[in-house]
Design a protein around this nucleic acid. Structure first.
Length: 852
RNA sequence: GCGGCUGUGGCGGAAUGGUAGACGCUGUGGACUUAAAAUCCAUUGUCCUUUGGACGUGGGGGUUCAAGUCCCCCCAGCCGCACCA
């Protein structure tokens, strides 16, 4: 008996070998093609979760595979180490955010190390390190000088109890998540990055991202939200004011029946502020919750200002409303309403009894315009000189007409807003600016960077610890030397993650964030892998960043990520005990087909399979898994079955199945190796049919697994590997040539599993008598002549139904196929009483006898 | 509401228009064992009384010698955005 595979010892052994030999540390090497494989950097929460394991397994498979394929592979790792949770921990447990963060990094790193990832740890980066954010501050200043960073007043969520600004996700039903106090909207000066400057470029760039999922491209496309239409200005009758409106439907001007502006439009208060009921109306508009549901259900509300605006085409005086469904921060914050051809305007007109005039003819039968608006294309009607035009044609014509009267102009509007980066927080990158009474905003001189976070802070009181720090914010103005004040805002943590992939390239560079030379060699990222939750913000900000950095003289491509893969979530069944409490899967087991608690045997209900979450306790701890089954089993299970882009259901059965496979393989080879020819034995000249078949499968697998990995079909690659393994372990050798073929198959198999189960692969590779480690061994070469089988087995159909299966020589002629097919009993039987009308023969595929 | 994705055995999932269900999980039967675990072998879409046959890829139409795959119309589920003029 062979001894059992000792997972712990073996896995540790190979990790040590890789580390000692610095197998995955890389430098720029122009003799090889490069491949930059990148996994989204984790937030150091302290413990890895299964989602991390899936993410890094995927990137590791790609990295190891690409290395075997001859690429110079960069696969780095770092920590997205700034952000709110550290401050929350500080408040809850009295630890310092910095200490908490570095402790967490140490813990998580040791967990990641036990996964056996092919990472170049010499490039590790923590974004909370002043050596990191120093360069970020330099970039901030570069942006500022280019006009890409600026300050403006904007509305924030203010928690009056905590005395602090809340992020949107910290506002739950209009209340602070911690204090429960109603959130106020307060105006503050905040820093912004001018991402809108690149709106069109970011939109156009999406077209070129052909190795991104369509889903993500669509989401970014919608997020940028380009629309074309026109701005127009009309005098408000009886005042000196002008109403600026934006519309995408200038073709419907003849159908206008009202004008409307946002509640927070400056003219609203100015024109109607004194009117009775105005304040109440504004109150009502603001009290409507911000939740999606509330908005959906919200009634269209309007407040008649009593003023009118004249329709430039009909000369009609139309009422000017203040309406709750008009958004101040889109377009101009004012519109004209055409109820016949806009759902919202229609609803509004119904409610306030405004007329509904059809100006676009529907080419099909559509409901009466008084009942339902018509949004589609058609010919213009009721519109004098524009009658008979198609909608698109009329848009252009109306814009032209208004431009001629100097009343408006064609315009393009984006949904995308500038990126607000100010956070009134401690644990973030300080904005490197100084406020001087005389000189205004002055950037911190480069020699004074980094602006480091002070360590001596406390969290006993609410508010921003930087703002109430006794000395930190007091500085002299770099320009005039007078006493001045440091900016106490810190940056949104999306700032750090917008360029970390560049820092990995040159992590020790003290002078610059990264050198042009290194960026020129490594960029763009060839394969980026992470969760779809970052489909918009992180990925869009990063795309903005490369453009902005380029504008500031850094050498970077426009698009940072040439290839993107978004993995699915990891799910698990939920368990609920009799009291209705959630139970951890680890505390539950199946006895005689029903689920019970391990502790007391009481019955437990197995509920829905949902995304793993702490609140439902349907989580498994990767550390337990790695400890019990080892890294290879965890990796294999994650890659098996579910396609990586879909959700993966974590099951005990699944992980055990993976573990079994590993043991089976190890056993099979260690039990056979003594009987195989030595490594490197010359190929025999002749093989038995069975050996030929086995060799075909071996070489087909070499090609197939490579194709699967290239296409991210890891589950199919695993299936192929199992198929080959089954063939090999079931193969009976009768002579030396058979044994040679078996060794060839095993060696190939081990190379194929290496990206997925690297520890096991190295161990068996050594057992097979190799001295060069697998991490340095190239992907096996395949023999083209062995890819095709000597024979093919295909179906024979009669009228499209399979009636027999035939096995033919690979080079059989159409006549051969026809002849053999017709000899089949099943075919003859199906043809009884019928005459053959036609024979379809596709060699190697199908024979179909058409009979009637 | 708009946009996108997905529907295939008990389950996860395979199938360049060409033998539907690869590979795995589960279940069942058996071998080994005093017994169990582990392991190995067989079997596992549904229905019909069988040799064998019929039916089967969310539903309904269509194209084709041939449709899970292509086209049209529905239905369900998931995700994103959401009063964006």
């Amino acid at each position: 008996m062979t001894e059992r595979y000792n997972i712990k010892e073996t896995e540790k052994k190979w990790r040590d070998v890789w580390t000692e030999r610095k197998c995955f540390e890389v430098t720029e090497d122009t003799s090889k093609p490069k491949s930059y494989v990148l996994a989204m950097l984790p937030y150091p929460s302290g413990r890895i979760h299964v989602g991390h394991v899936r993410n890094y397994t995927l990137s590791d498979v790609v990295a190891r595979y690409k290395k075997a394929k001859g690429f110079n592979v960069l696969n780095p790792m770092g920590w997205d180490a700034l952000g709110l949770p550290a401050e929350n921990a500080a408040m809850e447990r009295g630890t310092h955010p910095k200490d908490w963060t570095y402790d967490n990094i140490a813990q998580m790193k040791s967990q990641l190390l036990s996964m056996g990832l092919a990472i170049d740890w010499s490039r590790e980066v923590a974004t909370c390190d002043p050596d990191y954010y120093k360069h970020e501050q330099k970039m901030f200043i570069d942006f500022y000088k280019k006009g890409l960073a600026y300050q403006k007043e904007s509305v924030v969520n203010w928690d009056p109890v905590e005395d602090t600004v809340l992020a949107n996700e910290q506002v739950v039903d209009g209340k602070g998540w911690r204090s429960g106090a109603p959130v106020e909207r307060r105006k503050m000066y905040q820093w912004f990055f001018k991402i809108t400057e690149y709106a069109d470029d970011l939109l156009k760039g999406i077209e070129g991202l052909d190795r991104w999922p369509d889903k993500v491209r669509t989401m970014q496309h919608n997020w940028i939200g380009k629309s074309t239409g026109m701005n127009a200005s009309f005098p408000i009758n009886g005042t000196d004011e002008t109403l600026d409106i934006y519309t995408t439907r200038p073709d419907t001007f003849y159908g206008a029946s009202f004008f409307a502006m946002a509640a927070d439009h400056p003219l609203s208060k100015k024109l109607a502020g004194e009117k009775e009921g105005f304040e109440d109306f504004i109150q009502e508009c603001q009290s409507v919750g911000t939740s999606e549901e509330a908005i959906e259900k919200a009634d269209k509300l309007g407040f008649d200002t009593g003023y009118t605006v004249t329709n430039p085409f009909t000369g009609e005086e139309l009422p000017l409303f203040i309406a709750n469904f008009i958004l101040m921060d889109y377009g101009t914050g004012a519109i004209f309403g055409c109820p016949a051809h806009d759902a919202r305007d229609h609803e509004f007109a119904k409610k306030y009894d405004l007329k509904i005039v059809q100006v676009v003819e529907s080419p099909e039968d559509t409901p009466d315009i008084q009942d339902e608006p018509y949004i589609g294309p058609g010919k213009i009607m009721n519109s004098e000189e524009f009658n008979g035009m198609e909608v698109e044609e009329a848009k252009t014509a109306v814009i032209k007409a208004l431009e001629a009267k100097d009343m408006g102009k064609g315009a393009t509007v984006y949904r995308l807003r500038d990126w607000g980066v100010s956070r009134q927080r401690y644990w973030g990158c300080p904005v490197p600016m100084i406020h001087c009474e005389d000189c205004g905003i002055v950037p911190v001189p480069e020699k004074d960077l980094p602006v480091e976070l002070p360590y001596d802070t406390n969290y006993d009181e609410p508010g921003n610890p930087l703002d109430r720090h006794p000395t930190w914010k007091n500085v002299d103005c770099p320009e005039c030397g007078k006493a001045a004040r440091r900016e106490t805002d810190t940056c949104d943590t999306f700032f750090e993650s917008s360029w970390y992939f560049l820092r990995y390239l040159d992590p020790k560079n003290e002078d610059r964030g990264f050198s042009d030379e290194k960026s020129g060699y490594w960029m763009p990222v060839d394969q980026y892998i992470g969760g779809v939750e970052h489909a918009v913000l992180h990925l869009l900000y990063s795309r903005f960043f490369t453009r902005a950095l380029k504008a500031c003289g850094y050498e970077v491509p426009d698009e940072p990520f040439a290839g993107l893969f978004t993995q699915g979530m990891v799910t698990h069944a939920t368990f609920e005990d009799k009291e209705g409490n959630w139970c951890f899967p680890a505390d539950v087991e199946q006895r005689d087909g029903s689920w019970v608690k391990v502790s007391d045997g009481s019955s437990v209900k197995r509920g829905a399979i949902t995304k793993m979450s702490k609140s439902k306790k349907n989580v498994v701890d990767p550390e337990d898994i790695l400890d019990t089954y080892g890294a290879d089993a965890a990796r294999l299970f994650i890659l098996s079955d579910s396609p990586p882009e879909r959700d993966l259901e974590w099951t005990e059965g699944g992980i055990e199945g993976a573990w079994r496979f590993i043991n089976k393989l190890h056993r099979a080879i260690t039990d056979t190796v003594f009987d195989l020819p030595a490594a490197g034995t010359a190929q025999p000249s002749d093989f038995s049919d069975a050996a030929k078949k086995l060799r075909s499968l071996t070489h087909q697998s070499i090609v197939g697994v490579a194709e699967d990995i290239d296409a991210f079909h890891m589950n199919k690659a695993v299936a192929r590997i199992r198929e080959l393994a089954n063939a090999l372990t079931g193969f009976k050798t009768n002579n030396d040539a058979d044994k040679w073929a078996l060794r060839e198959g095993y060696e190939a198999l081990i190379c194929l599993i290496n990206p997925m189960m690297p520890h096991l692969a190295e161990e068996i590779w050594e057992t097979l008598g190799h001295t060069q480690i697998l991490a340095d061994t190239p992907w096996p070469a395949h023999d083209e002549s062995l890819l095709a089988n000597d024979t093919v087995t295909i179906g024979v159909q009669v009228n499209g139904k399979v009636r027999a299966t035939i096995t033919m020589a690979a080079d059989a002629s159409k006549d051969d196929y026809e002849k053999v097919a017709m000899e089949q009993d099943g075919v003859q039987k199906a043809l009884e009483g019928k005459s053959v009308k036609k024979m379809i023969v596709v060699p190697g595929r199908i024979v179909n006898v058409v009979a009637g």
